[in-house]
Amino acid sequence: MDVDIEDILAELNTDSTAVDYSGNNNPLSDIANTNVSTLYNSSYPDDKNIPTNKNPPGVRSNTKISAEQDYSSLMTLWRNERCSPELLPYPHHLMSRMLMRIQDQLERLEIISMDFMGQNSNTIDNSNKPINNNNMLPLLCMEAELERIKFIIRSYIRCRLSKIDKFSLYLRQIEQDSNLKSLDDLLSKDEMIYYQRHSEMILKLFNDTTLKHLPPELQAINDTTGTISMIDEPDWNKFVFIKVIGPNDKMLNSDPLLKKDSNNKFFYEVIIPELEEDVELFIDSIYVMRYNVIKNLLLDGKVILI
């Protein structure tokens, strides 16, 4: 894992690691109702059910986000990340909640299995054999679930790392052009460390093997003035598959961007600038569309990449 759970845990109020196991009616939905409240550091929504995604960084709300909601957000984020040509903002809060829950669940599973070990002198085999003891069933399921979550997080981080590698010069350019803040939003702390070390190492390798043997005027690796820029940018117009979801709160009538056609079907109107063409994107429909055209809708969670 590239994300250090310890770091995140240390940052949080100790109370917050104790996932609330409250509620007689709802004993199973974890509620992160402590200091971790905003979904994102940016306006990128990571949950379609939560209308508070416009909260600026640092604003605390008491929104309770269930583990289930977070997981479904993570699935969406993973799929978006895999399909988008650019690196999308890192969901700081969602990920810290997620990792916190994983940590908590791990400890819990350990306690449970130790209990079983104590009960049965036989070692417990969690493989696919049918389990006679029904008490073992939750353990089996929770372990399987944990593996699924770990997979999705790994795959998500891997995808992000591959983009960080690919666009390291471009990220450097962003870093220089704007204030450092924007890169902090884009990358997690660990990703930032990775990115910095990685680009340092690559640069050193380039220098040691090749560049230092060239005349100074040929040593640039980030010259953008020539016929072709040396910095690879994301292909902003790359075609992506999208599904139109609509506003987070599902209140179709209150989304000012939504229009209605003659059949009362809702759609977003987008413009493809290069072709001077208007396109209507209907709710629930699937399109192949240029990334740039739908980028804002994507960041608002109104379309997802599939």
Partner: peptide, 14 residues
């Protein structure tokens, strides 16, 4: 402790 507490779904059904 042997109860279901799921992270990806509402465990109540279980």
């Amino acid at each position: 402790m042997s109860r279901w507490r799921m992270l990806t779904m509402d465990g109540r059904a279980l």
